[in-house]
């Protein structure tokens, strides 16, 4: 899709540890502009920790993280804030503010980081809600009145509010029924193509990996062990990767 020199996220020598427990050690990862990267790995391999570290929610013990060619650790507060407006994050269950309606949730970043007039903010919020496939009736509802799938869509609308270039997704299809999950995959793919997004997706869902990921990064042994396309994964000889992509659940998806 894009050549390797065009990395929008570049992680070098990342080390994360909690107490004496080392999660990542010498982790390197490149995410190319315009691709959908799926990050997989067994439980406890630090997939979510990696995502949280890149978006700055978790301070690494060592290593460099560059996003848009800028080193995150050396930025001032103001520069960081500018950078944060250029990516959106969707947390597992949407992480919507429960005291605000869906539309008000989408408006939070717009009100905070843009100088748009109020009527335009309302219109853009409605636009994002519609783009994520929510019906207009969902706008004035509170998150507690929505189903899990709708909450994720609302979270996605909020993540897309400032027209980000990178979208971080933490297990976007977890907790959805297969039909809802497939529809959500489809939505991500469609938005990614329409908006030219780069997507960094932590997932366990083989269907998602197969349907929308351009490349897959496998976390194991505290680093990114392999990164490549689905075809390359299928041919890889590492026992865990064989187990993962050739297991009984994978066979139905890949048809192997």
């Amino acid at each position: 899709m894009a050549d390797t020199s065009d990395a929008i996220i570049r992680v070098r020598g990342l080390r994360n540890q909690f107490g004496s427990q080392v999660i990542h050690d010498g982790l390197d990862l490149d995410v190319n502009r315009g691709e959908v990267l799926g990050v997989v790995g067994g439980s406890g391999t630090g997939k979510s920790v990696l995502l949280r570290t890149i978006v700055g929610l978790n301070r690494p013990a060592a290593g460099r993280i560059e996003v848009f060619g800028q080193d995150l650790t050396s930025l001032s507060e103001a520069e960081r804030e500018m950078l944060e407006e250029r990516w959106g994050v969707l947390f597992q269950d949407g992480a919507l503010f429960s005291s605000l309606s869906v539309a008000q949730n989408v408006e939070v970043p717009l009100r905070e980081h843009s100088n748009l007039p109020p009527d335009l903010i309302d219109e853009i919020a409605a636009l994002k809600i519609s783009m994520t496939g929510l019906p207009a009736e969902a706008g004035p509802k509170f998150p507690s009145e929505l189903s899990g799938g709708m909450r994720k869509r609302a979270g996605l609308a909020r993540a897309l509010a400032l027209d980000p270039e990178i979208l971080f997704l933490d297990e976007p299809t977890a907790g959805l029924d297969p039909i809802g999950a497939a529809a959500f995959d489809e939505l991500i793919k469609q938005l990614q193509q329409a908006l030219g997004l780069t997507v960094f997706m932590v997932t366990h869902d083989l269907d998602s990996l197969h349907a929308i990921c351009d490349r897959i990064a496998v976390l194991a042994e505290k680093r990114v062990m392999v990164i490549g396309t689905m075809e390359e994964m299928l041919q890889h000889s590492h026992p865990w990767i064989r187990e993962y992509f050739h297991g009984p659940r994978a066979r139905a998806v890949v048809g192997a």
């Binding site: 919020a125 809600i129 329409a194």
Partner: peptide, 20 residues
Amino acid sequence: NVAEMLDEVVRNDNPCEIAP
């Protein structure tokens, strides 16, 4: 790019209520 963005916006011209 412009045509695609305009299309996306036209498709999603779906005004909604903001507050309950």
